[in-house]
Design a protein around this nucleic acid. Structure first.
Lengths: 151, 151
DNA sequence: GCAGTATAGTTTCACATGCAACCATTTGCA
DNA sequence: TGCAAATGGTTGCATGTGAAACTATACTGC
């Protein structure tokens, strides 16, 4: 016996995915982490508020669109508001809801960071050929879907 | 003006990778998180110790092979040792080094969890066709490499 | 109208993580 | 030999996170 059939971590898909994701996220996060004192979550919130500018998103909607826990978003927002990067009003007609928007400061950060993030992404994609890029998009869709509905 | 060119998070590679990775890791981790009180790091440590059974790995080597910070590994090991899942000796000839091995309890957990992890991975891969599987492996190699050496 | 329930958001707690500082031991080299 | 640098590993601190509980507001059916 002793047929333990050990798992070969380095060929295990979830593990490799996690390594790739962390390595890449880290390498991009360095761009704004120190320079703007911005965490990953905060950056994502800013990106979403920029993207849906004028729609006055609520915190819940931001949480949805960043695929992030509402608690995490709440705290990221608190930091952003305290730093004057996000303006927060109360919804007319539903006083539970907040109505969020980037301030000038928030826009400045977005406009500084977005091109860098895009450049970083481009550098990554440059390593793949056209076919691989298409394939990757399809694969990520399938895998994310699979993780969401595991049974 | 107002050419803010907002980043479209949902098409941004690092973001999508992170979502896919987290979703999948979470869905697998549920398998052992509650049942065995095992964190992701702890599971990885167990997997590596199983894989390199008999080699008496040191903590540093485990950290290397799990691509995890040495502090994180040190603490995971402390928990595993405290739970009687890992046996820890001191290296003859270099008393800084630890010599690690799974205990019977540790093996039991490995033998229970490994098949489930494998089954989960199989379910994921089942969503991809043969070509996509090959492509994915190549892509992950390239991306991880790209993240590691960004400059 | 009003009780019961749902929803937006915050707070509390418990914990995992990373960085830096830290011991102990070993190694390199003058 | 002896002392500085390197290495294995742990600990303190500051932070970010998720789960569950909680507050405040809005909705629903009677």
């Amino acid at each position: 016996m002793r047929e333990h059939a050990p798992l070969e971590l380095e060929h295990f898909l979830p593990y490799r995915l996690s390594i790739a994701s962390n390595t890449i996220s880290q390498s991009i996060a360095r761009e704004y982490q120190q320079r703007y004192g911005l965490g990953v979550t905060e950056w994502r919130v800013i990106a979403v508020l920029a993207r849906y500018d004028g729609e006055g998103l609520s915190a819940r909607e931001v949480a949805e669109r960043t695929a992030t826990d509402k608690v995490t978003v709440s705290r990221a927002l608190a930091r952003l508001v305290a730093a004057g990067r996000v303006r927060k009003r109360i919804h007319h007609g539903d006083r539970r809801r907040s109505v969020l928007a980037l301030s000038a400061k928030g826009w400045a950060i977005h406009d500084a960071v977005a091109p860098r993030a895009r450049a970083h992404e481009a550098a990554l994609l440059a390593r793949l050929d056209a076919h691989e890029r298409v394939c990757l998009a399809r694969i990520l869709d399938k895998l994310t879907e699979a993780g969401r509905a595991p049974r």
